[in-house]
Simulated assay, not measured.
Amino acid sequence: MTPLSLGSDLFAVPVPPLVPAGSTLPAAVQHRIDTKTKPLGALGQLEDLARQTCLVQQTLTPTLQRPHLVVFAADHGIAAEGVSPYPAEVTGQMVRNFAAGGAAINVFCRQHGLTLQVINAGVASDLTDVPGVRDARVGAGTRSFLHQAAMSEAECQQALNAGAAIINELHAAGCNVVGFGEMGIGNTSSAAVLLHVLTGQPLAHCVGRGTGLDDAGLQRKLAVLAQAVAAHPEVSASNPLQMLATFGGFEIAQLCGAMYRAAALRMLVLVDGFIVSAALLVAARLEPTVLDYCVFCTQSAEAGHRHLLAALGARPLLQLGLRLGEGTGCALAYPLVQSAVAFLNEMASFESAGVSTATAEASAAEAR
């Protein structure tokens, strides 16, 4: 396979270069946080989140506008190798459930005021009759990477472009914060292999039970994936897009393109669990600065996710034992993002409230 490259042709539309989110304002942001009516650091990770949001938006008064949750769905050829207890048909069935408003992510998006957008990135079954599902289908699922690359170079580029195009539209409509989810039977296998090949983490540490494998099923999954990795000796960890094309899924590639593009447009990126984090790992290997824009919402119960988070240097907001995917971790964590912005914008400062600071009190005591 000819190595894929990151260049001006990666996306169908021009992508501005990623710049570090904290290139300006850090001292002023920290002062604004520290002078709120509280002890230094008393709001913990909320302070980190407020600081990050300011730096992403390059303002001392950040806002959250038209928040969206985008779920990408696709089928995986590797599912035919018995790596999941669920049949591949479940992917399309769940997309229909999303469209009907009956899934967990629908409930949580309604609860927290997030607009849900469902994307058919490459579901095998026909969804043309399903209203409310955007058709960005690259193909009827990927091929089994036990036998060949999951997708061609052209398909990988098409998927990256499709993800970026969706973000362009959201940004143009005024959205500045977007969460990401996924659906795809077999996609924990793709994520596990991407984690393994991109970080060198032992494959056994990366492979989990997915949608609920028993012990025998887990061992079979591990054996299949070890065989699949061995079948592609030509793939190099130094070429993340080649890794993505070989072992990824259409939804994972669209996630990668979408997150990269969102960071380029200085949007706040909410990252869900294992699959979304694997897509981000690819994007971060292309350009580490993308991580400046990412809020890690949850640590999944899937075995490899803690290793993936460690590779990304991430500290998630929630640890609830979630392993559903769909973007549920993003939807549940979004109120914390709202709280971080709210305290920064609405909480009084020591000066405005007429409250003495610990430093001022100490100075006055010394003067006496």
Score class of each variant (00 low, 15 high):
D34E: 14
D34T: 04
T35S: 14
K38R: 14
P39F: 12
L40G: 03
A42R: 15
L43K: 13
Q45R: 15
E47Q: 15
E47T: 11
E47V: 02
L49K: 05
T53G: 03
C54V: 12
L55C: 09
L55Q: 07
Q57M: 13
Q57I: 08
Q57F: 14
T59H: 13
L60T: 10
L60K: 12
P62Y: 04
P62L: 05
L64P: 08
L64V: 10
Q65E: 15
Q65A: 15
R66I: 12
P67I: 03
L69N: 01
L69M: 14
V70A: 05
A73W: 01
A74H: 04
D75Q: 02
H76W: 07
H76Y: 05
G77R: 03
G77W: 03
I78N: 00
A79Y: 04
A80D: 10
E81A: 09
G82S: 02
S84D: 05
S84Q: 03
P85F: 02
P85D: 12
P87F: 00
P87H: 03
A88I: 04
A88D: 05
E89S: 11
T91S: 02
Q93R: 13
M94G: 00
M94H: 04
M94W: 01
M94E: 04
R96L: 00
F98G: 05
A99Q: 12
A99T: 07
A100P: 08
A100G: 11
G101S: 10
G101W: 02
A103T: 14
N106T: 11
V107K: 12
F108N: 02
C109H: 03
Q111I: 06
Q111D: 06
G113L: 09
T115C: 11
T115A: 15
I119S: 02
N120I: 00
N120L: 01
V123E: 02
S125G: 09
T128H: 13
D129N: 11
P131T: 10
V133N: 07
V133E: 06
V133F: 05
G139F: 01
T142P: 09
F145T: 05
L146K: 08
L146S: 14
L146N: 01
L146Y: 02
Q148I: 04
A149G: 10
A150G: 13
M151K: 12
S152C: 07
A154V: 12
A154E: 15
A154F: 06
E155G: 03
C156H: 09
C156L: 05
Q157E: 12
A159V: 04
L160G: 06
L160A: 08
N161S: 15
G163H: 07
A164K: 05
I166Y: 05
I167Y: 05
